[in-house]
Amino acid sequence: MRLLRDLSASAVVAGFVTVLVGYTSSAVIVFQAARACGAGPAEIASWMWALGLGMGITCIGLSLRYRVPVVTAWSTPGAALLATSAAGLPMSAAIGAFLVCGALLLLFGVTGWFERGMSRIPMPIAAGMLAGVLLRFGMDTFVAMRTQLALALAMVVAYLVGRRLWPRYAVVGVLAVGVAVAGIEGLLALSGVHLELTRPVFTAPTFSASALVGVAVPLFVVTMASQNVTGVAVMRASGYGETPVSPLIGWTGATTVLLAPFGGYTFNLAAITAALCMGHEAHPDKDRRYVAAVAAGGFYLLTGLFGATVGAVFAAFPKELVMAVAGLALVNTIGAGLAAAVRDESGREPALLTFLVTASGVSLFGIGSAFWGLVAGVVALVVLRRA
């Protein structure tokens, strides 16, 4: 079996780090969104079950189908939107809005509208967006030194030694050293961890004009602009531009439709966490990095089945450990993105503008900086080429 032949420890660790970063960075926003929709403890657990199941199935299925690292995620901007716009909305109406959003994602995937638009974006612009999105994570490695100098410094040293002696497993060593140092310093909060299966809760949907206009359409727009655009750009900049986009968008939409009644509010292509599976640290061979996404899918399935337990495990890691391991795992990817962005002199300035706007973190109309970086780069490219 090809998957067993291509299996490697570095890919499995890359998959674990992907899930670790995904959950620790934004799970709290999902909890807030669920509470805004009127969810109690049982419903919140069901949301995590549905999201873990959906991400796990799509990561594994799509990665094995196309033999490329396809990483999906929940929409973090979408969760932030729900936390504000869905307040006071009945849970059933929110579920109806999720179904409509999923149907729109499915429509744009099946028709190929989204892919045709993305195919017009030049590679330097996509690479600049990738580098801008990931820059903060690289810097966070050293930001972590402000509060946990010994931990972060030990992980940096482990990275450098690992890159010198065993490049394929440098991030494995970084994670091991980080956990060991955190344990020695008493930073691992494992007391709240207990094994518990999650039980899904079905909520029958209802549909209303207010939920359609106020939740469904904005959720779709934010997911497409802030998540899927960036996700496709990361795939292209990482050397997987030949992968058909439309089926990926279509399957995330179909998964949303199926799991929305249980709290799977939306699924989309990942960007930051996808870069962890698409970089050199996952595997030197580009054609074997899909295993990292399959491993991430397996860990996502576990997070769904044991939602409360896994949430407690991830919460046990100090934030500085997560910041450092994510930043160090992305160093090569950031460098590759910058190199691709400035390689062509004719597109260098638009690509750098894309990078700077994206890295700035500016957010307008509820849409994140990655989208506005893309807009700035395309506008600059058109103006400068005409000039």
Rank of each mutant, 00 (worst) to 15 (best):
T243C: 02
F262R: 03
S210D: 13
A79R: 07
L7V: 00
V294W: 00
V291T: 05
V171T: 12
V71R: 12
A14V: 15
G186V: 05
W372D: 15
L356N: 14
A152M: 07
D285S: 06
L197T: 12
G373M: 11
P200H: 08
P218F: 01
G56N: 05
A296P: 13
W113S: 15
V70E: 09
G56D: 08
T273Q: 13
L330V: 03
G61K: 03
F267Q: 12
L64K: 04
E185S: 14
W251H: 09
S26E: 09
A293H: 01
S26Q: 12
H280D: 09
G368Q: 08
F31E: 09
R199G: 11
A9S: 06
F365K: 02
W166F: 11
V100R: 02
A326G: 12
F317C: 09
A83D: 02
P247T: 03
Q32I: 00
S25E: 02
H194C: 01
L356T: 12
S363C: 15
L135W: 02
F108S: 10
L106D: 10
G183M: 08
G304M: 08
V70F: 04
H283S: 07
G15I: 06
L190H: 13
P318S: 01
G279V: 09
A359L: 11
V213I: 08
R2M: 05
E43F: 06
D140L: 14
F108W: 12
R35Q: 15
R385T: 15
T18G: 10
S246I: 12
E185M: 13
V12G: 10
R146K: 15
A9G: 04
L99N: 03
